[in-house]
């Protein structure tokens, strides 16, 4: 094991643990969408969650906020620091109190994430007032209307909106996509959550504003010493923003570990393919980018055993059995019978 890996190996008994997901399992109708997803995030830690569309990333994030559809059947446990109960199986009323206060979310699509018939400032203010009084941090002080307004403008200013007081009076359709995403971020940060979940927050934005919004997110999280789960399929973003990374495919975590290690020396064949497909340096002299064969099967149509075997060039009949997790703990390891990098070790 490399020195890098040993140094980054997460401590199991950390007192600063913010999120602990164990064996999360989600079924919807006939479909088994998430299988045995386990990971943890500590305070101030930024974890990336990567994978192609349809791999279960967004579903995982919704599970963390208790926003899965009513009829989803959920197993396992999701525990959050400061919340005395398991989010899996909690009542909607209890979940509502946790959402926006302890865990908040920035969504992918800023154009539709805001209510078109409500002023932006009111939507931010609402995030503050919902938890006012209940919030242990500030007591009931925030219920004061003037204070809420001041705080709203302050938040809009923090996310870098010019003329925040004017912006507060605007309707969403009067703002650009980047501006709206800042408003969504302001809403998410309003109650200083312990965990911020970002679901591809920059994908829908113009390239020119992506970096700026990304920077605002990281700064907002750092200022609060919050933990962050960052979902994306853009590996370069993960490399710059995150310390650890989880690779998902077919509703399972197939590899996890420090970004450095996973990106330098991927073990799972899926991770390897993902990296090769997005890394211009590995392009063959002929100029063709390597791709992963085939495409992600629709939910419910993944093979048994190793979920990736239907697209894997290294798959054998042994892969029809679910590969065991190789590694120290759920936060560091991989699930592959024919891992990459074995050639060098042999």
């Amino acid at each position: 094991m490399s020195a890098l890996a040993a140094q980054e190996s997460p401590t199991a008994s950390g007192t600063s643990r913010v999120l602990d997901v164990q064996g999360l399992d989600v079924r919807l109708g006939r479909f088994h969408l998430l299988h045995d997803v386990s990971f943890t995030i500590d305070r101030g830690e930024r974890v990336g969650l990567i994978g192609e569309s349809g791999s279960g990333k967004s579903l995982t994030s919704l599970a963390l906020l208790g926003l899965l559809p009513e009829d989803a059947r959920i197993g396992g446990s999701v525990r959050l620091a400061g919340v005395g109960y398991d989010l899996v199986g909690a009542r909607e009323r209890d979940l509502a109190q946790v959402r926006g206060r302890d865990v908040a979310m920035v969504f992918q699509e800023p154009m539709t994430a805001l209510n078109p018939t409500m002023r932006v400032g009111d939507q931010v203010a609402e995030a503050i007032t919902i938890h006012a009084g209940r919030s242990s941090r500030d007591g009931g002080a925030r219920t004061d209307r003037a204070a809420v307004r001041t705080r709203t403008v302050e938040l809009l200013d923090q996310v870098g909106l010019p003329n925040p007081a004017d912006c507060a009076r605007a309707y969403p359709h009067q703002l650009s996509g980047g501006q709206r995403q800042r408003v969504v971020l302001a809403i998410a940060l309003a109650n200083d959550p312990a965990l911020l979940v970002c679901d591809e927050p920059t994908t829908a934005l113009d390239v020119t504003v992506q970096a700026r919004v990304l920077d605002l997110i990281v700064r907002g999280v750092a200022a609060r010493d919050a933990a962050m789960l960052f979902i994306t399929h853009d590996l370069s973003v993960v490399a710059t923003v995150c310390e650890r990374v989880l690779v998902m495919y077919g509703g399972r975590v197939v590899e996890a570990g420090p970004v450095e290690e996973v990106f330098r020396r991927p073990r799972h064949r899926y991770t390897q393919g993902l990296l090769a497909a997005s890394d211009l340096d590995t392009a063959e002299p002929g100029g063709r980018l390597p791709t992963i064969r085939g495409s992600v099967p629709p939910a419910g149509a993944f093979p048994d055993g190793c979920v990736f075997r239907s697209r894997c060039d290294y798959a054998t009949s042994e892969c029809a059995v679910l590969p065991p997790w190789t590694g120290t703990d759920p936060g560091h390891g991989f699930a592959c019978i024919h891992p990459a990098g074995e050639e060098a070790a042999r």
Partner: peptide, 12 residues
């Protein structure tokens, strides 16, 4: 070093 890729079967 690797055997032949398997053909997708069943639920696929």
């Amino acid at each position: 070093m690797s055997s032949e890729p398997i053909r997708p079967t069943g639920p696929l």
